[in-house]
Amino acid sequence: MKPVINIKTISDINKFVQHKTKHPLVTIIDFSKMDEVMEDGIRISCDFYSVMFKNYCANNMRYGRQSYDFQEGSLVCIAPKQVVTMDNEIEKKEDMMGWGLFFHPDLLLGTSLGSKMKEYTFFSYETSEALHLSDKEKETLYDCIEKIETELQENIDHYSQTLIVSNIELLLNYCQRYYGRQFITRKGSNRTIVEKVADVLTNYFNSNELNKNGLPSVTYLAEKVNLSPNYLSDLLKKETGMNAKDTIHYYLIEEAKRILLGTNKSISEIAYELGFEYPQYFSKLFKQKTGNTPQEFRNLK
């Protein structure tokens, strides 16, 4: 396996693709104007955010464990410090189409977008969970890119950061909307995933896994259905109204109710059986989810 190339600054990535630096904290790269195709198997980690749109299917990328063949009109967003592997078939230069927006977290310091970035959970999706765009959606995003590019052509002044960041925020808000649309249009396959999640959690709570390994994590659940934790959580929220953590807690509380009403075990015994190190944490969660303490719920029967 090849070592990871860490690209620290916007100037570094511009040098990497032989692109002129117009602003130290943000750049837009037109992939059709790149002189060379990246080496096969190259592994890259950047210290900044990447939003990449590819309008062809020759290129293959891997992010984490997943691989993804870019279909026509697909967009992927990658957070800083994530490792991306380029698995390239040799491409003809004329086949390379698309754009990349790269911006450093320092650009967002002191802005409202800086405090909102954690809300854009798609930056932690796998590339296999890329956003597939309609022609109209492509045009809308490209309009944002053109506005940013126009601003990059200007001399940096007091208004530069505000105008660039506001257009990046607009682009990310559109991405959030389009992901919401994608969850809806893929409702059939999403329901299959919801059913898989139900099966995984039911089997987990019906086996001795709880005693051996404690409460299942969101990461564990995501791995079982071959999705990233954030994508799974957002999918479940759209389909069921509960994110991944809430879904795990739902099955936990249902199991707790079963034990409370079906046995004479003490609250502490039940808490330990359910994987809690401290019984008071179990009681607090149970009351939060049901409105009653475990003992109050038991007394209701």
Rank of each mutant, 00 (worst) to 15 (best):
Q161C: 01
I10F: 03
Y125H: 05
V4F: 04
Y250S: 13
A79R: 04
S50G: 12
V26N: 08
T263G: 02
Y159A: 07
S268M: 11
A130K: 02
D12H: 09
S228V: 02
V37C: 03
E223R: 12
F297R: 10
S134H: 01
T27R: 07
I193F: 09
V218C: 04
I90N: 14
Y250Q: 13
K81S: 13
F16Q: 06
K224P: 12
A256P: 01
P279K: 07
A271W: 09
L171H: 00
D234N: 05
V200L: 04
E94N: 09
D30P: 10
K33W: 03
E72Q: 09
L300C: 15
T27M: 09
A198L: 10
F297Y: 13
C46R: 13
S67N: 07
S67H: 06
W99I: 07
G180M: 00
Y178H: 04
S115Q: 15
S134M: 00
M61F: 15
M34F: 07
K289Y: 10
G100E: 15
L107W: 07
R258M: 10
K265R: 15
N59K: 12
G110K: 03
W99R: 02
I259P: 04
S189I: 12
Q18G: 05
N230H: 15
N173L: 14
V4L: 11
Q82A: 08
L107E: 04
D246V: 09
I145Y: 05
S124T: 11
G64L: 01
L252G: 15
I248S: 08
Y179F: 02
I259Q: 06
I259S: 06
I13C: 05
T111C: 04
N190P: 01
E119R: 06
D234E: 06
G275D: 05
M34P: 08
D199F: 14
K116L: 00
V197M: 13
K238W: 01
F183D: 00
T21E: 12
N264Y: 06
K81E: 11
Q176M: 11
G100C: 12
F31P: 03
G114N: 02
T127I: 11
N213W: 08
